[in-house]
């Protein structure tokens, strides 16, 4: 069952990622990116990383993608113009691409020990543990990040306001 789910969502993720690059209209690309994020979240879930899956959905598919779509709509970006097709370039690039992918896959497969399944569970990465760590050992970075965000907001106001 796990294998079926993994294979189908991995295929969806790869398909969406390809679609993201191939689409000419930015909105279609953005929607494909949501597909990638969503299927990655399912993969995390299959590996036992419930918290990571939830964060993936909330932060990436939720916040960041909404931001992307807003920017695309505000800038009113139209479809991109295809550069003229260069047959020679494609003929050289595609085999190189597949070679690279093959080499990377081979190296990864030869380096990783064959475990049955990777489990995030071993690292105790549930929401409770993450929350506890965030508010005890990592309290300071957590709080200082809010200052960082405040600086970013202030910067945006300074650069975007009509008159100072």
């Amino acid at each position: 069952m796990d294998l079926v789910l993994f294979l189908s969502f991995a295929a969806i993720a790869v398909g969406c990622a390809l679609n993201l690059v191939l689409q000419t209209h930015p909105i279609s690309s953005a929607l494909s990116l949501i597909g990638v994020m969503g299927s990655l979240a399912v993969l995390y879930l299959l590996l036992g990383g419930e918290f990571l899956a939830a964060v993936q959905l909330i932060v990436y598919a939720g916040a960041i993608m909404v931001l992307f779509v807003f920017v695309i709509m505000l800038l009113n970006a139209g479809g991109e113009k295809r550069p003229s097709k260069k047959v020679l370039r494609t003929a050289v690039a595609l085999p190189l691409l597949f070679t690279l992918a093959g080499v990377v896959a081979y190296v990864l497969a030869s380096q990783t020990p064959r475990t049955e399944t990777v489990k995030f569970g071993a690292y105790a990465a549930g929401p409770q543990e993450v929350g506890r760590a965030l508010f005890t050992a990592w309290l300071l970075p957590f709080e200082v990040t809010s200052i960082l965000i405040l600086i970013a907001i202030l910067g945006a106001v300074v650069l975007a306001r009509k008159e100072i």
Partner: peptide
């Protein structure tokens, strides 16, 4: 290292904005 990185970003982001202050 994480604290160093956050400090670095606080300093840098403010600096980027200051460099373009006279818009």
């Amino acid at each position: 290292l994480i604290m160093l990185f956050i400090g670095l970003e606080c300093s840098s982001i403010a600096s980027y904005v200051l460099a373009g202050y006279l818009r």
